[in-house]
Amino acid sequence: MTVPKSILMPLSSSGQEKERMLGALSVAAYFSAHLEVLHATLNPRRFIPDEVVARRMPQSLLQELEALASKYSVTESSELQQLFQSLCDQNHAPLTEQLIHDAPTACWQEIVGLRSELVGERGKVHDLIIVPQPKSGTPTSTFEAAIMRSGKPVLLMPRTLTTFCADRVLIAWNGSTESARAVASALPVLKAAKQIVVGCSNRSSAREPGIDKLIQYLARHGVEAIGKHFDSHRLAAGESLLQLSDSIGSDLIVMGAYTHRRVHEQIFGGVTRHMVGHATIPIWMMH
């Protein structure tokens, strides 16, 4: 329930790097938080089976591959880091590890390793993880590691969104444990919002605790909210939720992630997968 003060964002060279950096810096400015950008690279040896390395591949060729990969990685990292430093300067976010009260700060971390594993581990010592919406429209291993392993909320950001605003917030409520965790973690955002709508599908309206109890809980935290039920009988719940979000002009959606069993999500889709593929605004998620 504390205001996020330590934010982690994994960064890869998969396009829209500048926009993604600006979006993350905007989130850091919103919370006056420290932003750590994690740029992870892989050693090519990781992709070569051990038995191939041991028996078939000449060491000279392996060393040449590693040297080429290292040269490319250093060049790419240097260019991205320079761009990040420039954007930090423009947005008054000093590059420092030191704490500056009531002001955003940032740092760049260059690490060799698998991005998803690093995010799952390092996310545990941050308050919030920013993950870009995947190009493929399906959850990535980095997104799933952040959601399932970090124990912290994840902010799914559209790749081209450069500013963060949370004046109008939609809470997607179905009475699940995951939804409850998402709401609790988002309380600092909810307290600062100008309008909050709690949305619940007709399919979930009978589940307890219902909308009224959530609204009462929020009121005890000084947060005023109104409830809206939406019909998801004709459309998928995710599609209906996005329609409600559009109709009220929300800037942010707060919701639980993977509230059904993973097998059910993979076979039948699910709200989480739909939001990852189709949302056009940031989604605050927690498992």
Rank of each mutant, 00 (worst) to 15 (best):
residue 26 S to Q: 12
residue 97 E to P: 05
residue 71 K to A: 10
residue 59 Q to A: 07
residue 105 T to G: 03
residue 108 W to E: 10
residue 103 A to F: 06
residue 36 E to Y: 07
residue 27 V to R: 04
residue 68 L to N: 01
residue 96 T to W: 12
residue 37 V to C: 03
residue 63 Q to V: 00
residue 78 S to F: 12
residue 68 L to D: 02
residue 96 T to M: 06
residue 103 A to Y: 03
residue 125 V to R: 04
residue 97 E to C: 05
residue 96 T to K: 10
residue 92 H to P: 08
residue 67 A to P: 01
residue 110 E to Q: 11
residue 76 E to D: 03
residue 44 P to S: 03
residue 31 F to C: 03
residue 89 D to L: 13
residue 119 V to S: 10
residue 33 A to Y: 06
residue 36 E to S: 06
residue 66 E to S: 07
residue 45 R to V: 13
residue 25 L to V: 02
residue 108 W to D: 11
residue 34 H to I: 04
residue 101 H to L: 12
residue 26 S to D: 12
residue 37 V to E: 05
residue 53 V to N: 15
residue 94 P to Y: 10
residue 34 H to V: 02
residue 73 S to F: 00
residue 40 A to C: 11
residue 104 P to L: 10
residue 31 F to P: 05
residue 63 Q to M: 00
residue 118 L to F: 10
residue 90 Q to P: 03
residue 123 G to W: 13
residue 31 F to T: 01
residue 40 A to E: 10
residue 26 S to E: 13
residue 28 A to V: 03
residue 70 S to A: 07
residue 70 S to Q: 03
residue 35 L to A: 04
residue 31 F to G: 02
residue 95 L to G: 05
residue 80 L to R: 05
residue 37 V to P: 06
residue 62 L to R: 04
residue 116 S to P: 10
residue 108 W to S: 05
residue 86 S to W: 06
residue 28 A to W: 09
residue 82 Q to K: 14
residue 120 G to D: 12
residue 52 V to N: 12
residue 64 E to I: 00
residue 78 S to W: 14
residue 107 C to G: 03
residue 54 A to P: 13
residue 87 L to Q: 14
residue 72 Y to W: 06
residue 39 H to D: 06
residue 55 R to P: 03
residue 31 F to R: 01
residue 110 E to S: 11
residue 82 Q to H: 13
residue 88 C to Q: 08
residue 67 A to R: 01
residue 125 V to I: 08
residue 107 C to L: 09
residue 76 E to P: 01
residue 28 A to P: 04
residue 97 E to N: 11
residue 102 D to P: 15
